[in-house]
């Protein structure tokens, strides 16, 4: 086994599979644990696994608990279908499929009759990943999750927050959304912790 903390490159042999399990950034190839990314080697003592703390930026893969920014593409009564635009705190494009869904029961803590009452097509919302695989499931339950930018369904002008509702600065139309506490501030990198119901 190599020394902990040393810099590892892809293909470098770190340890043998008798010594450690393969963890993040490593792989078992023919009985040897090899590094697959550039970074510092360390041992995850809880899992007795060889892991790499990356020195490069790494591809953005979604995990349970991540905060994301997405755009509403389609709404039915029971489901909001979104496209993932950005992963909070990650300066890289997301790897793989960007489709995800929010079920009506995951929109807010209270009872929501129809998803159409809370979101409209084109809304930019902040959501939390409940499940990343096999299908992406999101939730907007909690005060800091929900719409961060919405548009007037009449004239498509960005709506302005007035108390707990949104108002169109051009036509004066008032609309209701599940809004995040920092609506309109453009904080796309804010990470939100999970709040239990």
């Amino acid at each position: 086994m190599i020394e902990e903390g040393s810099v590892v490159l892809p293909g470098d042999i770190i340890a043998t599979s008798e010594e450690l399990f393969p963890g993040y950034g490593t792989k078992d190839v023919g009985g040897n644990i090899i590094g697959t990314i550039i970074g510092n080697f360390f041992i995850n003592k809880k899992r007795t696994a060889a892991e790499i703390k990356p020195l490069t930026s790494v591809p953005a893969l979604l995990h349970k608990g991540d905060t994301i920014i997405c755009e509403v593409k389609k709404i039915t009564d029971k489901m909001v279908l979104v496209d993932i635009l950005h992963v909070a705190g990650v300066n890289r494009e997301m790897a793989g499929d960007k489709d995800a869904a929010i079920r009506v029961s995951d929109i807010a803590a209270g009872y929501v009759v129809s998803a159409r009452d809370e979101y409209r097509i084109g809304d930019i919302i902040r959501a939390r990943v409940m499940q990343a695989r096999p299908a992406m499931r999101l939730s907007t339950e909690g005060p800091h999750l929900g719409s961060i930018k919405s548009f007037c369904s009449n004239c498509r002008v960005p709506l302005v927050k007035k108390n707990s509702v949104l108002e169109c600065p051009r036509c004066g139309r008032v609309e209701k959304r599940k809004i995040a506490s920092d609506y309109g501030e453009g904080n796309i990198d804010r990470k939100v912790k999970f709040v239990r119901r």
């Binding site: 892809p10 950034g25 090899i34 697959t36 990314i37 550039i38 990356p54 490069t56 930026s57 591809p59």
Partner: peptide
């Protein structure tokens, strides 16, 4: 590819 942090078995 290594600079992009893409996991590889070797360079």
């Amino acid at each position: 590819l290594a600079d992009a942090g893409i996991p590889m078995r070797d360079i």
